[in-house]
């Protein structure tokens, strides 16, 4: 457990929670990244603007964090076929399952949504099994 970073993890998590709190209390929406992003194409024009603004903020927020001293995002260690397969699974899975780590894992679980709790348990378990199989 020498790579454990409790302080930055709790602080970063609290900032993510603050984002969800702001979006809920001010706009009445769920901070679910897969839902916000996948809706960019299907949404009406009026509904598209806020989704794009959120995504622009998301990218600039990463810049801001690095400017403030957080480590730069790392490059994933995977071959091209695995990157494509993983991307497709994440894209299809989050649309079919109506959410990802943010929408189900953070927003849904904090609302005690039974669907989100079930989804989070399943995607965590499948992630753990996949890592176990690929690293075995």
């Amino acid at each position: 457990m020498e790579n454990f970073t409790p302080t930055s993890a709790l602080l970063g998590g609290a900032i993510i929670g603050l984002s969800a709190l702001v979006l809920l209390l001010f706009v009445g929406r769920i901070a679910g990244i897969s839902g916000i992003v996948s809706g960019i194409w299907s949404a009406k024009n009026s509904d598209r603007v806020w989704r794009v603004l959120f995504v622009v903020g998301l990218v600039l927020g990463c810049f801001l964090a690095v400017y403030l001293g957080a480590p730069q995002p790392a490059v994933p260690m995977a071959s091209t076929p695995i990157l494509i397969l993983a991307g497709l699974l994440v894209g299809v899975g989050t649309v079919v399952g109506s959410g990802c780590t943010s929408g189900h894992g953070v927003c849904g679980m904090s609302r005690l949504s039974i669907r989100s709790i079930v989804a989070t348990v399943i995607f965590m378990a499948c992630g753990i099994i996949t890592v176990w199989l690929t690293r075995a």
Partner: peptide, 28 residues
């Protein structure tokens, strides 16, 4: 819900990206 979450979790475990961090990382 169940199949979608299972597919997502498998993709997540293959590379280590869920949608939020992947898109935020576009900064770099």
């Amino acid at each position: 819900l169940i199949i979608g979450a299972a597919l997502f979790g498998t993709g997540w475990g293959l590379v280590g990206y869920c949608p939020g961090p992947a898109i935020a990382s576009l900064a770099y």
